[in-house]
Computed example of a mutant assay.
Amino acid sequence: MTPIVDLRSDTVTRPTAAMREAMWAAPVGDDVFGDDPSVNALQDKLAALLGFEAALFMPTGTQSNLCGLMAHCGRGDEYIVGQMAHTYRYEGGGAAVLGSIQPQPLAQDAGGQMALADIAAAIKPDDCHFARTRLLCLENTWNGNPMPASYLEQATALARERGLAVHLDGARLFNAAVATRQAGETALASARRIAGYFDSVSVCFSKGLGAPVGSALCGSRELIARAHRIRKMAGGGMRQAGFLAAAASFALGHHVERLADDHALAQRLAAGLHGIDGLKVRSANTNIVFVDVEQGRGPALLAHLKERGVLATGLIGLRFVTHLDVDAAGIDRAIEAVRSFFAQAVPSAPAAALPGAAVY
Rank of each mutant, 00 (worst) to 15 (best):
residue 137 C to Y: 08
residue 135 L to P: 11
residue 135 L to I: 04
residue 145 N to D: 08
residue 153 E to Q: 07
residue 110 A to Y: 04
residue 94 G to D: 07
residue 160 R to H: 11
residue 124 K to V: 10
residue 95 A to L: 00
residue 149 A to M: 09
residue 150 S to I: 08
residue 108 Q to Y: 12
residue 97 V to M: 14
residue 142 W to I: 05
residue 141 T to F: 09
residue 98 L to H: 12
residue 148 P to I: 05
residue 143 N to C: 10
residue 137 C to K: 03
residue 141 T to N: 07
residue 93 G to W: 12
residue 141 T to R: 10
residue 99 G to D: 01
residue 164 L to T: 01
residue 107 A to R: 13
residue 156 T to W: 05
residue 106 L to V: 10
residue 148 P to G: 03
residue 123 I to P: 01
residue 137 C to V: 15
residue 101 I to L: 11
residue 106 L to N: 04
residue 135 L to M: 02
residue 105 P to K: 06
residue 118 D to Y: 09
residue 103 P to Q: 02
residue 154 Q to F: 01
residue 155 A to G: 02
residue 119 I to W: 03
residue 165 A to E: 08
residue 154 Q to K: 09
residue 104 Q to N: 02
residue 108 Q to V: 14
residue 138 L to V: 11
residue 123 I to A: 03
residue 99 G to R: 00
residue 92 G to R: 06
residue 154 Q to Y: 00
residue 101 I to W: 01
residue 120 A to E: 15
residue 99 G to K: 09
residue 116 L to C: 06
residue 125 P to E: 13
residue 110 A to Q: 13
residue 166 V to N: 00
residue 137 C to A: 15
residue 134 R to D: 03
residue 156 T to E: 00
residue 164 L to F: 02
residue 129 H to Q: 15
residue 158 L to M: 04
residue 162 R to K: 12
residue 137 C to W: 03
residue 124 K to D: 12
residue 138 L to Q: 10
residue 130 F to G: 12
residue 98 L to F: 11
residue 139 E to P: 09
residue 94 G to S: 13
residue 114 M to I: 15
residue 95 A to T: 01
residue 147 M to G: 00
residue 93 G to P: 10
residue 143 N to H: 09
residue 143 N to V: 06
residue 125 P to H: 07
residue 145 N to R: 15
residue 99 G to L: 06
residue 160 R to Q: 02
residue 129 H to S: 15
residue 117 A to L: 01
residue 119 I to D: 02
residue 91 E to T: 08
residue 157 A to D: 13
residue 151 Y to C: 07
residue 112 G to I: 10
residue 128 C to L: 15
residue 149 A to N: 00
residue 123 I to G: 04
residue 88 Y to G: 02
residue 133 T to K: 14
residue 124 K to I: 02
residue 97 V to R: 13
residue 107 A to H: 11
residue 145 N to Q: 11
residue 152 L to K: 07
residue 105 P to W: 08
residue 165 A to M: 02
residue 94 G to K: 02
residue 93 G to K: 01
residue 126 D to Y: 14
residue 153 E to R: 12
residue 124 K to E: 12
residue 140 N to Y: 11
